[in-house]
Design a protein around this nucleic acid. Structure first.
Length: 266
DNA sequence: AAATTCCACAACCGCATCTAA
DNA sequence: ATTAGATGCGGTTGTGGAATT
């Protein structure tokens, strides 16, 4: 199915946003609320694509956005969530108040990935779902634009925080996961999804919470089929845990809770 | 001091998914 | 059930500024 461009590209501004554009967008959204991105630029008096407006609002103008100085705790959480969820930046961002998916993605690519490499750890590159959208794509031809000076941006958020997890221990945890488990997980999930499609049963398939054991997680597959809950360990052996039994195992660990919420969403 | 390289990050693009007619 | 349009997401690029040579 062919698709029209998200907006007419003729005569629209591109590149960095001016202060005036920011003000127009902010004023309009504060008065009328988010949404209707396609028609928003016209209504707000902006010569911008709706997608561009949305991106600018979500990543920059939206109230409550923290900028810069990602704390060690936040980094740790990003690393752990990424190891579990892959590059699902929007989900990860949802667990870091005030942070945007774009910022987390950038931080991952510029800081954390490099650190992992330094540690000799290969981080998982993709989400559990296949995300290879661009495998056969030609390199895009970008229009050049002038970047706004960094000094134009107000930097906030500075608090240094302490953390119980060293990068090394996190990294070793990730290593455990990525070296074997992710691939296994993907294979099993693929298998299960296939199975589900065949049987057309009304079942959900999702990842179970990880069991914390010195940051070496033991992922399990969890299958919900109507009222039955079955848990498999990483060797595909059935475990006799119910979700209710598993939940308390997670204790107070933030990551577990985050993951538990994620499961609920699935 | 000038040239070069590296880094951070805003913003773009294209595809996937959702939604409403 | 179909399909066009809207929205969301993740990968990638290009640029300015900082760091290094």
């Amino acid at each position: 199915m062919g698709r029209a461009p998200c907006c007419a590209k003729v005569g629209l501004h591109k590149g960095p946003w001016s202060t005036n554009e920011d003000k127009l967008l902010t004023d309009y959204i504060l008065a009328n609320g988010e949404g209707q991105w396609r028609s928003l630029p016209k209504k707000a008096g902006l010569l911008r694509c709706g997608k561009s407006c949305r991106l600018r609002w979500m990543n920059y103008l939206r109230p409550g956005i923290k900028r810069g100085n990602i704390t060690k705790d936040e980094e740790d959480l990003i690393i752990q969530l990424q190891s579990m969820l892959g590059n699902r930046w929007s989900i990860i961002a949802g667990k870091l108040p005030g942070r945007t998916d774009n910022e987390i993605k950038n931080h991952w690519n510029t800081h954390l990935l490099r650190r992992l490499k330094k540690e000799g750890i290969e981080a998982p590159k993709k989400s559990h779902k296949s995300l290879s959208k661009k495998s056969n794509k030609e390199p895009s031809k970008k229009k050049k634009y002038k970047k706004k000076s960094k000094n134009d941006h107000v930097k906030e958020c500075s608090s240094e925080s302490t953390t119980s997890n060293s990068f090394g221990s996190l990294a070793s945890g990730i290593s455990t996961i990525t070296s074997t488990s992710n691939q296994e997980q993907e294979e099993v999930v693929d298998k299960l999804v296939e199975e589900e499609a065949k049987t057309s049963q009304d079942s959900d398939i999702s990842w179970s919470p990880f069991e914390l054991d010195d940051l070496c997680y033991c992922p399990r597959i969890e299958i919900f089929t109507h009222e039955d809950r079955i848990l498999f360990d990483h060797d595909d052996r059935e475990c006799d845990f119910s979700l209710q039994e598993v939940a308390p195992m997670m204790g107070d660990n933030l990551l577990d809770k985050v993951y538990y919420e994620y499961l609920q969403l699935l």
